[in-house]
Design a protein around this nucleic acid. Structure first.
Length: 420
RNA sequence: GUGGGUAUAGCGUAGUUGGUUAACGCGCCAGAUUGUGGCUCUGGAGAGCGUGGGUUCGAGUCCCACUACUCACCCCA
């Protein structure tokens, strides 16, 4: 269908775009408070970037990317996540040669994943994300978690839980993998069919299974947290210390496993409880080896991504109203042959910074007022023959109906006082 | 990718066991004596019933396929 947006995409209509703008404003402010500055990277990148960065065994890379050949026979992919592009940008422009850490955020960045759309899940969605390159201390991980937490809190979202975990580093994780596999191998026959498949591909995922039988079997499974190397253990301990000092509620959830290969040490999720179950609004973690893996220097980094559509969805679910800026400050109505006078008044008001409009459909005065009322304009400015002859304008406060006549030259000024 | 549900004007719905020009609410437009909104009243425009086949004298109502939307699984923001 020509008149239908592609599956999994959504239009943001003029009547609701202010909600997005509201979020954007809040997000920019939060980021700026912690020293994050905006970065804008392309919507598409070389496919290779994601294959190497995100990991070519991940679901995202294996089956969810929008990949195509451009006319120069290059394999191009629409961003399936935000971090890889930021890392590439950081590297390409040698930002590591500047003062570190290098902190950046992206906003409203379109993210594409070919998945079956459903509640809270689109093929094109938008993220706000923060990335910090060049800092290895857990204070960074903590500041990012706090940034996301306070932002959501500030927006009015309750039921927020912060879950953290550490998935170790290339030094200790293989050991854990092995231990877990050995543990699972002994119980393989008792696992559900999906978990038997997961056993090879991603054994960590088995710990997250919802099947009763699997939960029982994995109750005493070894925990990554007990097998962290000294460095990772200390880092994780420091992170918790930071979070405790910030006095925010958080839980260590050893089952958090992120679907992207680049994560090391810290991984975290901000989850909210809705009537239809839990919804992750924000996810992130540390990726100390991504930059190096892309051919850059050894460079620790942390970041998170937050789905705007999901945030908006939660605000709806909780009945949180976003203040509307309104449409017009004033509406110009006119009678008879005073169209040009009305046009000039409208333009004059706009020059004074008053958001206004006039009738463009040749409607009757009555209809013009109806329209003004519908748009929610708080003030109307009317020009009829009398006003035109006297060089005045008739102003009306729509909420009370009170009217006054003022010289045309003072219209803007008077309207401003009426709005105050 | 797999399974379930749905598909009638801009939106939300009604359409009895298949039978004349498809109904209602909201919204939209226009009026209710001369220069004015929000309430009320009146009138009007707007769909041929997701698409394509089939059954039938006749289908929005039955059958098939396709598509879209939606929910769940998987995975994720």
């Amino acid at each position: 269908m020509l008149t239908q947006a592609p599956r999994g995409t959504k239009d943001v209509l003029p009547a609701e775009s202010y909600r997005w703008q509201y979020l954007e404003t809040k997000m920019r402010r939060s980021a700026a408070l912690a020293g994050y500055r905006e970065v804008r990277t392309p919507v598409f990148e070389h496919t290779e970037l994601f294959a190497r960065g995100v990991g070519d065994t991940t679901d995202i890379v294996q089956k969810e990317m929008y990949t195509f050949k451009d006319k120069g026979d290059r394999s191009i992919t629409l961003k399936p996540e935000g971090t890889a592009g930021a890392a590439r940008c950081f590297l390409e422009h040698n930002l590591y040669a500047d003062a570190l850490p290098s902190k950046m955020y992206y906003l409203d960045a379109p993210i594409f994943r070919y998945e079956a759309p459903q509640s809270g899940r689109l093929r094109e969605h938008h993220q706000f994300g923060c990335e910090c390159f060049g800092a290895k201390e857990a204070t960074t991980d903590a500041e990012l978690i706090l940034l996301a937490f306070h932002l959501l809190k500030d927006l009015g979202i309750s039921n927020l839980s912060v879950n953290i975990n550490s998935i170790g580093c290339p030094k200790c994780r293989p050991l854990y993998h092995q231990a877990l596999k050995e543990f699972l191998a002994d119980r393989f026959d008792g696992l559900c069919p999906t978990c038997r498949e997961r056993f090879e591909r991603n054994p960590l995922r088995v710990l997250d299974c919802k099947e009763k039988q699997c939960r029982e079997l994995t109750k005493d499974a070894p925990s990554m947290l007990n097998m962290l190397c000294g460095d990772c253990a200390e880092h994780f301990e420091q992170l918790q210390e930071c979070l405790r000092s910030a006095d925010i509620p958080f839980a260590v959830d050893a089952r958090i496993v992120r679907g992207l290969d680049y994560y090391t040490k810290t991984v975290f999720e901000l989850i909210t409880r809705t009537k239809d179950g839990d919804l992750t609004v924000c996810g992130g973690g540390r990726y100390d080896h991504l930059v190096e893996q892309l051919g850059g220097p050894d460079m620790p980094a942390v970041g998170f991504g937050m789905g705007l559509e999901r945030v908006l969805m939660l605000l709806d679910a909780e009945g949180i109203e976003i203040p509307s800026p309104g449409w017009y400050d004033a509406f110009v109505t006119y009678m008879g042959d005073n169209r040009i006078q009305a046009f000039r008044l409208t333009e004059a008001l706009r020059k004074e910074g008053i958001r206004c409009d006039m009738d463009h459909c040749g409607r009757s005065l009555k209809a013009q007022f109806k329209y003004a009322n519908k748009t929610g304009a708080p003030v109307t400015a009317t020009i009829g023959d009398e006003e035109a002859a006297a060089g005045t304008v008739r102003l009306k406060r729509m909420s009370t109906g009170e009217e006054q006549t003022v010289p045309a030259g003072r219209a803007a000024e008077t309207i401003r006082t009426m709005l105050a």
